[in-house]
Design a protein around this nucleic acid. Structure first.
Length: 839
RNA sequence: GGCCACUUAGCUCAGCUGGUUAGAGCGCUACACUCACAUUGUAGAGGCCGCUGGUUCAAGUCCAGCAGUGGCCACCA
């Protein structure tokens, strides 16, 4: 028997890459290669695709670890397990990174042109994507690489087009001219939830509007320069001060420029705030724009897409917003129109990508209508939902309200629902070059808009051949919204299913020897809806909500059964880790290099719960590396023993054996329950406790006395299965060093056997443990070293039998010579329940 | 302004549907290189479970109020 002796300590660096390679080559990451029972359940996770902007951070490591734990657990349980990996093109984010990179060598996208610039982006991705993929592997992620997806893959791009056109035809996508969030720096629109707010101490300007034939009206504002674009003044209908002005239109002289304002009343105005009169700027404020619609005000665009004043701003045209403000305020002052200036704390809106100040601007953009009705085509859904018509917003609310989709932790359910309530039409067009170009063609002859998958030969309206594709691209979240099903082959698989039930999504995914029904079904049919969506709570709205909307709309079914939200990783100061402060962040890959992936995984999981933020400390990681070494050494110890029999005969011969088996089967039951209820931290803590403080501290020590190594080995090997989801590398390494033929990754999850759970033996053994601990304590307190053997007299009529049976264990583990006394002891120095001891 | 969390040992955090002396890791103290492991072993110290009331036979756990911390949403110009 050429048993390879294991080195004294575990060396993750030596084995991890090799082990990963054997897993990957085994094909077991692919559900098609798993041998499963006929009625096996499925378990599917779509990996939240990391952005191809750069390398993975510690947050990705957390997500991948949780996902891998779930995946490995379900695979061990014998389920048809698929974890589908992928990466996201991350449109604007990636474009910004590449732009910054180019700026360093004096290049910009304008002088490169669209095509060249996109080439540069793809070059960038050619370097980042392999790094990301290798990092995912380094963490031990057991995902099915044969199904890896990229949001710009052909099929996924097709999915985007199909979805856009479907929604357009249903009237759910429309083009509109209205106020959008504009980032002058990115040169693009942003969705409402892509705007961040920051508190800032600013000024509150009181500007006097002189009205002919009436008292002047004073308007308060934080943005005086926008008053140049005012076309109205809003007051409260009951405000006595302004009663006689309501409904009238005045020309107001603002020093160097004149404006025309209509005075109107609306209940939304707070008469207590400021002067009770609001200057209304329809072109540069959403609420003002809404008023403009309601009261028929004109819209005057005075700020352009670069953040400069337009020609409408008269003498201020061409100035930046900031400069225009300074000049305008000076002018107002010199004309005596500035009544006063107060300090004022208010929120400014910033771009979530580049932190530039957002300018609300009127612009012609594409929107998704969230409140417009459409027909539900899926009969089952109609039955469940109770109606055959709905809106995107309603169906997405319904799904979560009725627990069609479960959110863990449940408190985020409320968050989700209020967000849905506040949802407005979603602006999906971006003036970004990198991404899915909008499948819309504009006729240069008659300006007709043609929506089509490919370039139309002629304009459907005028027959012109001069058609140009819309230069805008789609919000990156539009393609992410389709992720759970676009990665499984929609819409192609879907279309093929309609035609024939015998198609296969991909020839390369065929299983050689399993030509059964699963070959006839597409991935989409087999794996959608997915089982769990595991992601950070920070993208609940950006992503999770939109996947729910998209899936119900496109497929008439939920995208996933359960949403598991993990927390955000923070540094020691409790701050969000940021790329701008690299010294505060923990690089997952250097941790893997130093301590191994298993130690990193444990430190990310232990002591954390769903939705709670995590502070990561370097000492924590080092601590768990010790546990892994400990576990490894138990295995090493077992391998160094001479076995009486070569078969794994599991036989509980002694009390200690019965205790071990009972504790172990208890553990199986408890850990399984915890896995099933997403309590991963609790599960691994229990496993840790058992491994170290029951198995290693007691069973290993007792095996040196009682020599039942077979039982020890059996429990240990089964324990490795329970530990495998958390620490795949070390468990597989040890497993294979035991010359087991089957890989641990596809072993069977142990089953708890009721008959082996023996509370009586546990209680009895507990007495022995306590007895030994008490004696050791006595030793420690009296500074008696371990070389001295003590004589111990015990008087215990009730436990006498037990103690005499366990005499050898007590004597060896406590280093005593034991004498049982029938009589009461004169000076019992140690007392336990029903036991007196004298030394 | 609305909503949601959090506050437990020096530090980082567990404690699910209320039930015996409140747990873990790290750190700390003392002792021990006992042949799997010094990435070790043995033993130990350390907690008005934020504050104040209430419900209950019983509360870290449920309810109310207060204080502090953090987050999300809205964005009153």
């Amino acid at each position: 028997m050429d048993k390879k002796e294991l080195p004294k300590t575990y060396q993750p660096k030596e084995v991890e890459d090799k082990i990963y390679k054997t897993w990957e080559e085994s094909g077991f990451f692919n559900p098609d290669n798993l041998k499963v029972k006929k009625k096996a359940k499925k378990f599917v996770i779509s990996m939240p695709p990391p952005n191809v902007t750069g390398e993975l951070h510690i947050g990705h490591a957390l997500a991948l670890t949780i996902e891998d734990i779930m995946t490995r657990y379900h695979r061990l349980k014998g389920e048809i397990t698929l974890w589908l990996p992928g990466v996201d093109h991350a449109a604007i984010a990636t474009q910004n990174v590449v732009e910054k990179k180019l700026a360093k060598v004096g290049l910009n996208k304008e002088n490169l042109g669209r095509e060249k610039f996109l080439e540069k982006i793809n070059e960038h991705i050619d370097t980042t994507r392999p790094i990301i993929e290798s990092q995912i592997r380094k963490l031990g992620s057991s995902c099915d690489w044969s199904r890896e997806a990229y949001t710009l893959d052909e099929n996924l791009s097709q999915a985007v087009k199909t979805m856009f056109i479907k929604m357009y035809r249903d009237g759910l996508i429309y083009r509109g001219y209205r106020i959008v969030n504009w980032c002058p720096n990115c040169g693009s629109t942003l969705a409402d939830d892509e705007v961040n707010y920051k508190e800032e101490l600013g000024k509150f300007y009181y500007i006097k509007y002189n009205l002919e034939d009436a008292k002047p009206i004073v308007v308060a504002t934080t943005r005086p320069e926008t008053k140049i674009g005012d076309t109205g003044v809003a007051v409260h209908p009951n405000d006595k001060r302004y009663q006689d002005l309501i409904g009238k239109t005045f020309t107001v002289n603002l020093g160097k420029i004149k404006i025309q304002v209509k005075i109107f009343a609306d209940k939304q105005v707070d008469p207590e705030f400021g002067t009770g009169a609001i200057g209304v700027t329809p072109a540069h404020s959403l609420i003002d724009w809404q008023w403009a619609q309601k009261y028929g005000l004109e819209m005057k665009k005075i700020i352009d897409e670069k953040g400069n004043m337009t020609s409408e701003a008269g003498p201020y045209a061409g100035l930046s917003v900031k400069l225009a403000r300074e000049r305008f305020v000076e002018d107002l002052k010199s004309f005596g129109l500035l009544e006063k200036v107060d300090d004022y704390e208010h929120n400014i809106s910033l771009c979530y990508r580049c932190s530039s100040i957002i300018e609300p601007l009127p612009s012609r953009q594409w929107f998704v209508a969230v409140d417009k009705e459409f027909a539900i085509k899926n009969k089952e859904l109609v039955k469940k939902y109770g109606q055959n018509k709905t809106t995107l917003k309603k169906i997405a609310k319904w799904a979560v309200e009725k627990n069609e989709i479960e959110i863990i932790p449940p408190r985020f359910k409320k968050n989700y629902l209020t967000w849905m309530d506040n949802l407005y039409d979603w602006c999906i067009s971006r003036q970004v070059w990198f991404g899915h170009q909008i499948p819309v063609w504009h006729c240069q002859g008659c300006q007709t808009v043609a929506v089509s998958e490919t370039t139309p030969a002629t304009c459907p309206a005028c027959g012109s051949r001069n058609l140009v594709q819309d230069t805008d691209t789609l919000d990156t979240w539009f393609s992410s919204a389709l992720w759970t099903f676009s990665t499984l082959g929609w819409p192609i698989a879907d279309a093929q299913n309609q035609k024939s039930k015998t198609c296969l999504a991909n020839e390369s995914r065929r299983v050689k020897n399993q030509k059964d029904e699963k070959e006839k079904k597409s991935d989409l049919e087999r794996f959608h809806p997915t089982t769990v969506m595991e992601t950070g709570y920070d993208i609940l709205f950006f992503w999770v909500a939109r996947m729910i909307i998209a899936s119900y709309y496109a497929l008439g079914e939920k995208p996933f059964e359960t949403v598991y939200l993990h927390g955000l990783i923070r540094d020691i100061m409790g701050q969000k880790m940021s790329k701008s402060r690299p010294e505060t962040s923990v690089n997952p890959i250097s941790v893997v290099e130093k301590y191994g992936a298993d130690a990193l995984r444990l430190s990310l999981i232990i002591g954390t719960t769903a939705g709670a933020d995590i502070k990561i400390l370097p000492e924590k990681i080092a601590g768990y590396a010790k546990f892994i070494n400990k576990l490894y050494n138990i295995g090493r110890f077992i391998q160094l023993q001479e076995f009486v029999s070569k078969q794994n005969k599991i036989e509980a011969k002694t009390l200690a054996d019965r205790w071990l088996l009972s504790r172990f089967h208890n553990l199986i039951e408890s850990v399984t329950k915890k896995f099933d209820s997403f309590q991963f931290s609790a599960a691994i803590e229990e496993l840790y406790e058992f491994s170290w403080h029951e198995l290693a501290d007691w069973s290993v020590e007792i095996s040196k006395i009682e020599k039942n190594y077979e039982l020890l080995k059996n429990c240990y090997l089964n324990l490795l299965k329970l530990l495998h989801p958390f620490i795949p590398f070390v468990s597989e390494t040890i497993w294979q060093s035991f010359e087991e033929k089957k890989m641990l990754i596809i072993e069977n999850w142990p089953k708890a056997e009721e008959k082996l759970i023996d509370k009586n033996s546990e209680a009895q053994f507990e007495i022995i443990k306590n007895l030994i601990t008490e004696i050791r304590n006595y030793r420690s307190q009296n500074k008696i070293d371990w070389k001295t053997t003590l004589t111990l007299k015990i008087h215990s009529p009730k436990q006498e039998k037990l103690i005499s049976q366990q005499k050898e264990i007590i004597e060896k583990l406590a280093k005593v010579e034991l004498q049982l006394s029938k009589e009461k002891l004169k000076s019992a120095k140690i007392k336990l329940k029903e036991i007196e001891m004298e030394i």
